[in-house]
Amino acid sequence: MIRLDGVSYAYPDTVRPVLENVSLDIGRGTIAGILGASGAGKTTLAKIIAGFIPHVDGGELSGTVSVEGQGMGDLQLAEAVSRVGLVIQNPFNQISGARYTVREEIAFGLENFGVARPEMQDRVGEVADLLNLGPLLDRSPYELSGGQQQLVAIASMIVLRTPVLVMDEPTSQLDPAGTRMVFDVLSTLRGAGITVVIFEHKLELLHQHADVLYVLADRSIVAAGDPTDILADAHLAEWHIGSTRYTRVARAAQKRGLLAGLRHLPVSLEQAVAVFADDGGAR
């Protein structure tokens, strides 16, 4: 579905590449989480998958990027964006400013693609229900809180029904309830066959919802695989990713002599309960 083969990229007039030899293979209808410290090139990778690099930013891109077998470099930007949706990190900057109410703001993309009015109304109503935006529809997007703006930004992309959705830290301004709601919506979209690539550092939620995790460090993908395996990887600290609170508790326990000999540290509540129960039982 989404394939990157040996992708390297340097911004215009820079020598040092931001990404080197990145390869990904993400199947249809999956949620792929990409972990990376700040400055690891997450935003750059998001723009490459969405076709903005090299269409808009220029620069030196090598390797191949394809979505549904179609090379993104061969498409016009307008065609690329109708295949891959992109939610950017800062929700305030995602507000178009062209529209005066949340309802019209969500419809802005549909208007640009020339979707007929009745269908537009249906789709806007649908995503508003999905993300609990009903009460905000007649407000100005500029009057909303950062979290509400972030939900509007996500709604404005979901409403376009692109087969792929790339999201750059889409829950950074949301409270825990809002974050859970967004992840639940993503799971619903996955059920409908939509592929989601999410750049995120909320590890526990990624563990619950993602099908596969990638780690971006030192300009390349350094680890890929099942979320449980990746999150238990002992190298996460070297890559400045951090770890789940369950892993941290287990590690602290090991320092005090508990859980001796445990190779796979827990990454979820269930696993933590299980290992501590085993350990207690062993005593």
Partner: peptide
């Protein structure tokens, strides 16, 4: 600020 060479390569890429 940008040297003519760098600019030209940037243009060629574009």
């Amino acid at each position: 600020r940008t040297g003519p060479k760098a600019t030209q390569t940037a243009l060629a890429r574009e």
